Amino acid sequence: MSVSGVTNNSNPYALPDDTISVSEAGQLSNQFITLMVAQIQNQDPTNPMDSTQFVEQYATISQVQSLENMTKLQQSSLVLADNLQMLTAASLVGQNVTVHTDSLELDGKVDAQFDLQHTSTNTVLWLTDANGVETSVALGRQDAGRVDVALDPAALGLKPGTYKVRIETATGEEPRLQVAGKVSDVRVSDSGPVLNIAGIGSVPFYQIVQFGQRG
Rank of each mutant, 00 (worst) to 15 (best):
K182P: 11
S66A: 13
D190W: 00
D17R: 14
N8C: 12
P12L: 11
L80R: 00
Q95C: 08
F114A: 12
D82W: 07
Q113H: 07
V149P: 13
N122Y: 08
S66I: 06
D44V: 02
I208D: 01
Q178W: 01
V97T: 04
A170T: 01
A180K: 06
Q39G: 02
P45L: 05
P160H: 10
A38E: 13
T19C: 10
L177R: 12
Q43W: 01
Q75F: 01
T171W: 09
F114G: 09
Q178C: 02
V3P: 03
A112Y: 06
R166D: 01
L116E: 10
S51Q: 15
F114W: 10
P193G: 06
V64G: 01
N11F: 06
E173L: 12
L156A: 10
V124K: 12
Q207V: 04
Q65P: 02
T34H: 10
G212V: 04
I20R: 10
F54P: 04
A89L: 01
N47F: 05
S29W: 06
D82F: 02
S66K: 14
N196Y: 09
V97P: 04
I33R: 15
S77C: 00
I200C: 09
D44P: 00
S76W: 04
G172V: 06
Q117L: 14
F32E: 13
S191K: 02
T34K: 15
P160V: 05
P16R: 07
Q85M: 06
Q31E: 13
L156I: 00
R146H: 06
D152L: 08
I20V: 13
P153F: 03
A138R: 08
N196Q: 07
Q207M: 07
I208R: 00
S136G: 11
I197V: 04
V209I: 05
L67E: 04
T119G: 12
S23Q: 07
M36C: 12
I200E: 03
P153V: 05
K159L: 12
S91K: 09
A14W: 02
Q213N: 08
A59S: 15
A170S: 15
S21A: 11
Q95N: 07
N11G: 00
L87K: 07
T162L: 12
S29R: 13
V194W: 05
T34A: 15
K182T: 11
R176H: 04
N11T: 02
D44F: 05
T119M: 15
N9T: 08
V79E: 06
Q57M: 12
G94A: 08
D143H: 11
D148Y: 09
V79S: 03
Q113F: 11
Q53L: 14
V209S: 01
T34P: 02
A180M: 00
S23A: 15
T46H: 09
I33N: 15
I40Y: 10
S189R: 02
V110L: 01
G172I: 05
T101C: 05
T135H: 04
G132K: 01
Q57E: 13
E168G: 12
Q57F: 01
